[in-house]
């Protein structure tokens, strides 16, 4: 069994900040906008190094999305930064009309997604953002799993022409993917081969999926682990190939069951090759205050939940 090593836990938002700082040096067309959360989004270095290319818009997210759309006219590549809640639900119509329908090359960069925002509670813990964004025609939706991957994704989306939603988070989580990785939008990453069950995870749940696979192996269950960093467009071939081999699947994400990665996988299987699926996701509920670990356990997004789901999926084959 392949072993992955945590090179030292880091927050994915810092991966975004590091990627943006790199872009500031390498791509003169990249500009950044922030709605009064420069520190939280780790955009300070970009701002310091490129004051002319940084736009502080204040607490006015709708205006930020519109300005970003306008900045593309003339060839700039705007990266907007605020919390995931204020990057999606609050400004859905602005994104829909001025960015997605207008086909504008805006990168919507969203931090503090999901329950792991922690103590701020449900007002800020959006668990619907992947669904909101994946429903928009032409929108690419990316949810990387760790610091290194978030940095690589941030840099990769600057070279892609079209609207992108990039989702990341607040807590320090295991950093285990290669520092020098090439990020390919829309490509599933096979992390662990197995024959009994496929675990398809995204974002913070990828490391937990690897932990679960290790414990399952001790129980004699060989789990295949796939990292889906791009939820749309979904790498359907990789998932179908794996599920054809293992015969069942567990989807794992820090998001509502409705509208998330798991639902995309269900649609894919239903249309091509139906197999049993178990969901590790929030079940139609808002979050609440608590530490990230407490919340992940209470809402069923822990390593133990993935193990239970895998065993159940296998039993339904």
């Amino acid at each position: 069994m392949k072993k992955y090593t945590n090179q030292g836990s880091k927050d994915t938002r810092s991966g975004f900040g590091a990627g943006l700082t790199e872009l500031g040096k390498t791509n003169p067309n990249v500009v950044a906008l922030c709605a009064d959360l420069t520190g939280s989004l780790k955009m300070g270095d970009f701002k310091k190094n490129n004051p002319d290319r940084f736009f502080q818009v204040g607490i006015a997210e709708a205006n930020m999305m519109g300005i970003a759309a306008g900045l593309t006219i003339g060839g700039k590549i705007p990266f907007t930064g605020t919390f995931a809640n204020f990057s999606t639900g609050r400004v859905y119509d602005q994104i829909r009309q001025s960015i997605a329908y207008s086909g504008k090359n805006v990168k919507i960069c969203a931090s503090h997604a999901g329950l792991t925002l922690g103590e701020d509670g449900a007002t800020h813990q959006i668990l619907e953002d992947i669904g909101l964004m994946k429903m928009l025609p032409g929108m690419t939706v990316i949810n990387p799993c760790d610091y290194n991957q978030t940095k690589a994704a941030t840099m990769a989306i600057a070279d892609y022409d079209g609207p992108v939603y990039l989702r990341f988070g607040r807590p320090k989580v295991a950093n285990f993917t290669p520092e020098d990785q090439t990020f390919e939008i829309g490509k599933a990453l096979m992390l662990q081969e197995g024959t009994d069950v496929t675990i398809v995870a995204t974002g913070h749940l990828v490391w937990k999926a690897l932990e679960a696979a290790e414990i399952l192996a001790e129980k004699g269950i060989q789990a295949e682990v796939i990292n889906i960093h791009t939820i749309k467009p979904l790498d359907g071939n990789a998932i179908l190939k794996s599920v054809a081999k293992t015969g069942c699947v567990v989807s794992a994400e820090e998001h509502q069951m409705y509208g998330g990665l798991g639902e995309s996988i269900s649609g894919l299987l239903a249309q091509n090759d139906p197999h049993p699926q178990e969901f590790v996701a929030v079940n139609d509920s808002f979050g609440e205050s608590g530490t990230p670990d407490q919340l992940m356990e209470k809402y069923g997004l822990s390593t133990a939940n993935i193990i239970t789901a895998a065993q159940k999926a296998i039993s339904r084959k």
């Binding site: 519109g66 306008g70 900045l71 593309t72 700039k76 602005q94």
Partner: peptide, 10 residues
């Protein structure tokens, strides 16, 4: 107006 501002900034 937001879009026009963005284009003006560019």
């Amino acid at each position: 107006m937001s879009v026009a501002i963005g284009a003006a900034l560019t």
